Simulated scan of single mutants.
Amino acid sequence: MVRCRNSLVAIFNFFVFLLSIPILFSGIWLSLHGSTQCERFLDMPMIALGAVLMVVAIAGVVGSCCRVTWLLWFYLCAMFLLFVIVVCFTIFAFLVTNKGSGETIPGKAYKEYRLGDYSEWLQKRMNDNHHWKSIRSCLYDDKFCNRLELFSDIYRNASAFSKKDLNSLESGCCKPSNDCNFTYVSPTTWNKTSGPYKNPDCNTWDNDKEKLCYDCQACKAGFIDNLKTSWKVVAIVNIIFIVALMIVYAMACCAARNN
């Protein structure tokens, strides 16, 4: 029974070790070959994650197979810390993403997004100029607004464009807000009407392809809405990971006690 527990811990950590290799080398590759800030954004986190997983996995394999007690205790402490971090992040992710959603506009297939509808923590992050400048750079580098121009022949007027099901980033960053009442020319070209405008985004809008509505509050809201979906998926995956982590941690505790 003792050997079985030790073997299960060793097998699990062997697979974790194999997983850490592509994570570590992907981070190194991004650091060396990433041509833009967005491509290099995850290099250090991936290197750190890969290195930590590799060290912890080696400690688990050696400690359980060779019955090295101090390595198993190190492994247990590292696993407990990882467990606490994952639980805290999961709770935090659910708390900051449970508020806000797109606003349905009558007669439009797409939704409008308002920054004030989302959690205050996310609003503060988006309104931080230094933070938003990095995000804006990534959004522009992706050129997703340019892809809308490919449909110019299909969406020749505002009525046809209103039937386009835009995602949150396209709706918030690539077109002006619906309450600006601008004159439609193409998906990313709109002629301004006479103001004044109640919505400050109307003044921010620019037909320049490098500007558009990338500095609009709606664009920040669209980014948050897109982020919410990703964070919720990660949070659900984390719950599954937490359950698996608890099972392995229990087996590792038994192995350490038996050693």
Rank of each mutant, 00 (worst) to 15 (best):
S119D: 13
C174M: 06
H130W: 05
L150Y: 07
F151I: 04
G63R: 02
N157D: 11
M46L: 14
Y75H: 15
V52R: 08
L30W: 01
K99R: 14
V55M: 14
P200L: 06
A93H: 03
W70F: 15
D165W: 01
C4M: 08
L150S: 12
A235M: 08
F12K: 08
A78I: 06
F12L: 09
F83M: 13
Y118G: 02
F74K: 06
L227E: 06
D153Y: 02
L49A: 14
I23Y: 14
N259R: 05
I135E: 02
L122P: 00
D201V: 07
P176D: 04
F17P: 00
C77H: 13
D43F: 03
T90M: 09
S119V: 04
I239E: 04
A59I: 07
F25S: 11
R3L: 09
M79C: 05
C180Q: 03
R67T: 07
L227Q: 04
A78R: 13
D43S: 15
V86T: 08
F92I: 09
L18V: 10
C213N: 12
G50E: 05
Y197M: 06
A10V: 01
W132G: 08
G172F: 00
P106W: 01
S7Q: 12
I247C: 12
F89W: 15
P45K: 07
K175Q: 09
R147S: 13
K228C: 09
T183M: 04
G63P: 03
V86Y: 10
W121G: 10
I85F: 02
C173V: 04
N127H: 03
A158N: 13
F41L: 11
T204H: 06
G27K: 05
G195F: 07
D208K: 04
I21M: 13
G195Q: 09
L139P: 05
A160W: 04
W70R: 14
C174P: 06
M44K: 05
L32P: 04
N127Q: 05
Y214C: 11
L122T: 07
V68Q: 10
F12C: 12
I247A: 15
N167T: 07
N207M: 01
V233C: 04
G116E: 00
F182C: 01
P45Q: 14
F144Y: 08
D206C: 01
I236K: 03
Y110V: 01
D206L: 03
T90N: 12
F92E: 02
K164C: 14
F89C: 15
I11L: 11
K133M: 12
F83W: 14
K211C: 10
I105L: 12
R3E: 09
N199V: 08
R125C: 07
S230C: 03
N178A: 13
L71G: 07
W70E: 05
L150N: 08
R257L: 12
C213F: 00
A109T: 02
I91W: 03
R257W: 13
N226G: 15
A244R: 11
I236C: 04
F223D: 03
L139M: 10
A160Q: 12
T229S: 10
L8T: 07
Q123G: 13
A51T: 10
T189M: 13
V2D: 08
A250R: 15
F80W: 11
Y214A: 10
P106K: 07
K163V: 02
V243T: 00
N238W: 03
V248F: 11
A235C: 06
V233P: 04
G50F: 14
K232C: 06
R156L: 04
D43I: 06
T193M: 03
D225A: 06
A93I: 06
S101L: 01
